[in-house]
Simulated assay, not measured.
Amino acid sequence: MYRAVGHQAEILKAIRTKICLANPREALWLKETALAEEYGVSRTPIRHILQLLANAQLLHTQTGLGTQTTVLELNELPKHFEIYGAICDIAIGVANEERAPRETILALMSVHNTLLIDEDRSPEAFIDVYGRIIDAMSQMITDPILCYAHQAAFWRLIRWRVQEVTAEVEGSWGLAASNIQSAIDAATQGTERDLLEISGRMGRSHIDRLINYYKVN
């Protein structure tokens, strides 16, 4: 999804984390000059990274004003989850009836091991864990347009979920551990299609929790 490599990829990941940590219902303004100074690079790579994030609908550029996070409307939250589920259904429909790639299985096991060893339960760690999960899942989606849509829809859901994670630490991380174990089971015992079905369930299972959370926050 993101055509950034090396140091630029790390900067993109850091800025994406900033976006996910911000309240999705409020605009966070990002200034090229400030970001370039923060990460010790020129404005050119920052501009490229912001464009990539804008292509994924995480950012929105207003002429003459600058770049801000895309504001999400609460009444569209259920639709965002439905869209992610629909994209997963398409991916399932065209997936191979073969075992998941070895790289995907190893990546998921690595995430699982991280949860067992690392006690960090911060929102930043949550974003990193799910970023690694979606990267692993995306290895099975060979169509570039479908893969791009899958990742973009996923990151929109993460923006909704991070706020809840801050308030419901134990429950959110417990659900993450359960999701990862289900994904590993599907990857090692089933097919690519089975694993993508788990990915779809990960999205659909959070709708009611999030709606209840945002009703009082």
Rank of each mutant, 00 (worst) to 15 (best):
V165F: 08
L108F: 02
R99N: 06
C147Y: 14
E98Y: 10
I15R: 00
T44Q: 14
E32M: 11
T70G: 03
G66A: 04
L52Q: 05
Y84H: 05
E170S: 10
R193N: 10
E26Q: 15
R3G: 03
Y214I: 00
F81C: 04
K18M: 14
L195V: 01
E124H: 08
P45N: 00
A22C: 04
V216S: 13
L35P: 00
E82S: 10
S205Q: 15
Q139C: 04
R201V: 11
H112E: 13
A153N: 04
D185G: 12
Y148I: 06
E103K: 02
R16G: 02
H206F: 12
V165S: 08
A176W: 04
N75D: 14
L175W: 14
A167K: 13
Q62I: 10
E103I: 07
S172K: 11
E192P: 00
E168G: 15
C20T: 13
S182F: 11
N55P: 03
A95D: 05
L195E: 06
L12M: 01
H150C: 15
N23T: 09
A167L: 15
I105E: 01
I46N: 02
V71P: 01
D135K: 06
N75W: 12
L53M: 03
N113F: 15
K215H: 15
I127G: 03
Q57I: 10
N212Q: 14
L146E: 02
Y39I: 01
Y130I: 11
Q139V: 06
A125P: 08
N75R: 12
V5N: 01
A27Q: 12
A27D: 12
D89S: 08
P78K: 02
I87A: 05
I15F: 00
I117G: 11
R132H: 09
I117N: 13
R132C: 07
I117M: 12
A152C: 08
Q151T: 09
I46Y: 04
D143W: 09
R47F: 09
E197V: 14
A34Q: 15
D208R: 08
A34M: 13
I133A: 09
L59P: 04
I133H: 06
K79Q: 15
G40E: 08
L59I: 02
E37L: 06
A183F: 01
P144Q: 07
A125C: 14
C147T: 06
I90R: 15
T44M: 14
L28E: 10
F81Y: 07
Q189L: 09
M202T: 11
R132A: 10
L157F: 11
T44V: 13
R193I: 05
E119T: 09
T44A: 14
I15P: 01
V41D: 00
V162W: 06
E73W: 07
G66P: 00
L196F: 01
E98A: 15
R43Y: 07
S122H: 02
Q181F: 12
E164F: 12
H112N: 14
G93N: 15
G85Y: 04
V169S: 05
M137E: 07
L53F: 01
D143V: 07
T69M: 04
G190D: 02
T61A: 14
G93A: 05
G200A: 00
G131N: 03
D143L: 07
A136E: 02
I184F: 07
R25C: 10
I87F: 05
L72G: 03
Q181L: 14
I198F: 06
D208W: 06
F126P: 08
E170D: 14
E38Q: 09
P24C: 03
Y2A: 00
R161V: 07
R132W: 11
